[in-house]
Write a protein that binds this DNA or RNA. Structure first.
Lengths: 229, 229
DNA sequence: CCGCAGCCGTAACGTACGGTACGGTACTGA
DNA sequence: TCAGTACCGTACCGTACGTTACGGCTGCGG
């Protein structure tokens, strides 16, 4: 009973933070991100308190426990990445391909950033310890799922305009995911050194968009539909 | 000086294990795999000694230190997965697609196995701590890189037979990677529950093979080459 | 039979880290 | 002036874990 009460209180504290982080708390979360990204620094409560010039007592008051801190950090980072919706310009095949390409380029840029790599590593490490962790779910929600939600309107517009042909938008998005990300993310997570210059990102995004249109473009080849028998 | 000597001795011990693991050591490594896979058990030297009914002293004698143990475990698992080369049957478009599909299905099966997920999580967690870790490199070498090496002959054969058209086999393989894996691996690593029944694997493999042939098939659409621009 | 090498089981040590407690300080409102 | 609040800095506690050390058991060559 007493234990349950404690957990409940901690959850309340954590959710309270999720509601609106104080500027001071934002600074602390930025310091936490810096520690997570730094390869030769580990994110411990003591190191964070030292780096952010705050007391551990405040950390526990604000975030409940270490898990609440990590959750708040991931959500804080996610809140900084959001935005950049697809503009609803009139859609031709050129603008559709350009939109897909820009989307893929933005995605690859975020994905290959050291912050994204570090947070994904952290969430994966947490997911290793079986219990009911939510870090992985949060990263998942703000990673692939959010990307899917943002791409879907563009796909739907393309289909309404007769430029794309697909039954399930989710399946189409997952194919786009594969064409864009390929083995880049897993290699980065495993520590492979990849340069990925801006020109590489542009080239990869253009290739992915072109391939996606080959697979899903409706008017691309007017000599007849696939008719896979 | 003394420190360097110690590290050297440990490296020697670890490499000695890499050379030929004793049957007893193989059993220990299997126990280590079981512990890694078990979500509610952590792989500590004590728990492994208890699970494998051996002394910690023996663990340190055989594997040097914890890192050597993890390395030996990953290599042991990798040695169990190898094999299954592509058969060099006469290649038609049907057999090529069937080979690609079988390859993709095998790959998805291994990839979604709990052992693969657990080992990838372990290596990613180790890669988080910056230093010169080699676990990530080993997993990378026995994962995507090994798959690429095994798929490359099939792609080359397809090209020689006039069935495939590509310049860089590596690029073609990475596209195949994306089409096969899509977001499955990252979702599994982040703890998302995915059923992935055998029929799902078959369907996904068939889809990936078909899409790959759409992108890279040479004789698939005889009404003219791509001639981009 | 003796010594010894290999191994098991367990105790012990040092350290790192999550979490808590306490004193000290600055600010606010009565 | 004084209580209250929020916070910093630090010392402290309990535990987990990597690593080492030691006692006891078995099998084998001399």
């Amino acid at each position: 009973m007493e234990l349950a009460t404690t957990i409940s209180e901690r959850a309340k504290a954590a959710s309270e933070t999720g509601g609106d982080p104080t500027p001071r708390q934002k600074a602390v979360l930025d310091a936490a991100l810096a520690l997570i990204v730094d390869p030769k620094a580990a994110l411990t409560m003591s190191s964070l308190a030292r780096a952010a010039s705050c007391s551990k007592e405040s950390l526990y008051k604000w975030f409940g426990d270490r898990d609440g801190l990590l959750t708040a950090t991931v959500q804080w980072q996610a809140s900084k990445v959001r935005g950049m919706p697809v503009r609803r310009e009139e859609l031709g095949r050129q603008t559709l391909e350009a939109s897909l390409e820009r989307f893929a380029a933005d995605w690859l840029t975020v994905l290959s950033g050291e912050t994204s790599v570090a947070l994904n590593r952290l969430a994966i490490g947490e997911a290793a310890g079986g219990g009911g962790r939510n870090l992985g779910r949060i990263v998942l929600e703000n990673g692939p799922v959010a990307m899917g939600r943002r791409l879907r309107p563009l796909l739907e517009l393309g289909r309404e305009a007769g430029l794309l042909a697909f039954d399930d938008a989710g399946e189409a998005f997952r194919d786009f995911f594969g064409l864009v990300v390929r083995d880049v993310q897993i290699r980065l997570l495993l520590g492979d050194r990849i340069d990925l210059s801006p020109s590489d990102i542009r080239a990869g995004a253009a290739r992915a968009a072109r391939q996606f249109l080959v697979l899903y473009g409706a008017g691309h080849r007017p000599d007849g539909p696939e008719s896979a028998s």
